[in-house]
Amino acid sequence: MPTGVALRDVREQLFAAAERILLRAGPHALTSRAVTAEAGCAKGVLHKHFADFDAFLAELVMDRTARLETEAAELLGKAGTGTVAGNLRPVLDGLFGSVAVAIVSLVIFRDDLRTRLRELRGAPGLPLLTEAVAMISRYLEAEQDLGRVAPGADVTSVAGMLIGTGHLMFADRSATSPAPSSAEVDRMMAAALAGVVR
């Protein structure tokens, strides 16, 4: 790796390499040596920028979780426009058609990482999935305020059903998962939103 590369560029190269490994081979294949080899850099580069491999993994998860904030703002901006299901569908497609499922598998796979993330986040729950539930809950609350979601609807439970069921549909790396545009995902969304959306 050339010297003089900005720290953020190095971090992004390493994070992108880790994501490729996760998607291709799963969390068991993710090692510091595999990440640096995938990134095409010297073995010591990762340890130059991170205290240890668990610190690297924690930063990867925190970085990818922080990206949900942009999506959350975009989703909130759609409140009152289009349809509720139509606004939620791209969010679910993004969550389950991306590296997010692989990152959740990584967090489940590594106990020490889960403990470290709990300390960093100051909250329980699985990173990404917990934040996704909160993002959808806030959106549904905004739609509730606009009268497009039933006033008595438990929006947090609905958001949890959407995220939990979506994760179950896509989490099995060895089975054939439904494509994000599949009728199965549409049926799941329709069931979760039935009686909730006006």
Rank of each mutant, 00 (worst) to 15 (best):
Q144W: 00
P178A: 12
L168R: 12
H167Y: 15
P180S: 13
H167G: 12
D145K: 01
L146W: 02
Y139K: 01
A159P: 03
M169S: 09
T156V: 04
Q144K: 08
E131L: 03
P127Y: 01
I136E: 03
A183Y: 09
V133P: 06
V149K: 00
R173W: 13
I136A: 03
V158W: 07
G160Q: 09
M161L: 13
A142N: 01
A153W: 00
T165V: 10
A132V: 05
P151L: 01
D145A: 05
T165W: 15
S157P: 02
L140C: 05
V185Y: 02
V133S: 11
T165Q: 15
D145V: 00
T165A: 14
T130C: 10
S181R: 15
G152S: 03
A159I: 05
E131S: 11
A183F: 07
V185W: 00
E141A: 04
A179F: 07
A175K: 06
M169P: 11
E143Q: 02
A134K: 13
E141Q: 02
M169G: 13
A159K: 13
V133K: 14
L128I: 15
V149E: 01
M161P: 01
P178Q: 14
A142H: 07
G152E: 04
T156F: 00
A179N: 11
M169W: 07
A134F: 09
R173A: 15
F170T: 14
D186S: 05
